[in-house]
Design a protein around this nucleic acid. Sequence first.
DNA 1: TAAACCTTGACACTCTCGTGCTAAGGTTTG
DNA 2: CAAACCTTAGCACGAGAGTGTCAAGGTTTA
Lengths: 115, 115
Amino acid sequence: MDGLTINEAARTTGWSPRMLRYVERTGLVSPGRSASRYRLYGPAQLQRLRTLKELLAGFDIALSDVAFAARMTRDEELRAAVTAWLEAKPVRPEHVDAEDWLRFEQDKHEKLLAA
Amino acid sequence: MDGLTINEAARTTGWSPRMLRYVERTGLVSPGRSASRYRLYGPAQLQRLRTLKELLAGFDIALSDVAFAARMTRDEELRAAVTAWLEAKPVRPEHVDAEDWLRFEQDKHEKLLAA
DNA sequence: TAAACCTTGACACTCTCGTGCTAAGGTTTG
DNA sequence: CAAACCTTAGCACGAGAGTGTCAAGGTTTA
């Protein structure tokens, strides 16, 4: 039996047993299982649970936020798409190039035609 | 008047006027304002709204996810903390070093004492 | 000036997240 | 074997995301 069971893990990490199961469902911290399917938390998992708790509290972020960050880490395409969108951000309505204005005019025309 | 008003922008982007206001509150796409505080969407904003819509639909992610990614982009410390936590992930209960086991034993003892 | 727009604020509803608790049934252990 | 645990499933509930709609009041425009 190498690992703490769910209630023991809960006591040493500050999470509730219920939440440990929930965290597992998010895929962020998954314990191993005994032959009879009991969750077994090893030292690595316990440490991750503690630091995860600090991370959430320290920056006031949600489990789903970390889960999303994890997904971005795994999914190369997603990360590329999101960062690409974000990088295009610092565009101000003041500085617009000719092509953008062209599309803009087209929009206005489409709108007029649609009306 | 250089920019489309909210209803016009809604028609050309596929978002509802209500959602355009909501998106603005998330800080992801903020239009300029006319003298009388009317929202004015320029070509850049319109394009961002369209691509944002594709991004959400294409990867089945939420506005709040992109908002979180944006926050990580801005907040250096947050990004460092989250990536640090995620990078420590590929640790399997099988491969654990001596120090981890030491902490593990300490956990067990704490637990016994606390009981 | 009257119709058509825009603004903010608020009520409301559906979904998901985060959490607790209970039930029915297997496992471990004193 | 009986007490103490563990498992999954499910009910419940507050909070926040996402979205519509309506109201009261200012702006633009035909």
